[in-house]
Amino acid sequence: MRVKLKIWRQKDANSKGAFVNYDFDGASPEMSFLEMLDALNTRLIEKGEDPIAFDSDCREGICGACGMYINGYPHGPVKGITTCHLSMRYFKDGQNIVVEPWRSKAFPVIRDLIVDRNSFDKIQVAGGFISTNVGSAPDSHAIPVIKEKSDHSFDSAICIGCGACVAACKNASAMLFVSAKVSQYAQIPQGKIEAKERVEAMIQKMDELGFGNCTNTGACEAQCPKEISVINIARMNREFYVAKIS
C-alpha cells in the first residue's frame, strides 16, 4: 500500500526543523506503523540519506520509548495502544499522514521525532518512591493489603511514562503522569508513610519543569495508551490539599 507522509525533520535541538514529504509505496497492512517507518528508512539509508530518527525499543507496548503525534493523535488514531502497536491496517491506501514529535516546552526535540523526556525522570526522582532499604522488609504477609486497593494501585502503576498525556493535553500538562505515581502509593499502606512529602515534592518539581496546568479536559485519559483514569488526578489533588492543611 501507498501512504503520503509528512514528517517533521530536525537535525538537532538547536536547528530549525521542517516538514518533509515522503510518498511511500512500500507499506503493507500487516506492518506496524514503526515497521513502515523502518522500511522507509531502509530506502533512505540505501540512498545514503539520513534516516528518520525516532525512539522505540520493546516494540510490544510496554517500555514507553516510542511515541509520535500521528494525524493529530498521540500514538495515532487508535485508542489504548502505543505507536509500536499501531497497525497499518488502520490506514487507507493513499492516505495522508502527518507525523510530528511530542510538542511541549518540557520535552524539547532532540532530533526528528525524538524528544527529551528526562523531565519525567526528574519528577520521579523528586519523590516517586517508598523509602525502604534493601534488607529491611518484613515478610510480605505482614502487610496485608485490601484486594480492591491493591488492584487500584496496580491500575495506576501501569503507566509506561511515554508522555502521550502531555502530548495530548492542550496545556501540555503532566498531571496524569504524576498522579498515576502518587495514586499508586497513596492507596496502599506501604506508601502512606511519606505520602505528604511525596505529593508535595513531585508537584513542586512538575511545576518547575514548565509543564502546563490541568484544566480537566480529559484528553490525557482519552489518549493514554494504558487508559489510565483522570480519577488519579482527583486523588492527587486530594492528597495535595490534605498534605497542605494537615
Binding site: 517508598i130 522488609a137 504477609h141 496485608p144 484486594k147 491493591s150 494501585s153
Partner: peptide, 14 residues
C-alpha cells in the same frame, strides 16, 4: 512488596 510493587492479591489481602 515493601517498596510498593502491586502484586496480585486474594480477598484476604495476601
Amino acid at each position: 512488596t515493601a517498596i510498593g510493587v502491586p502484586f496480585a492479591r486474594d480477598y484476604g489481602g495476601n
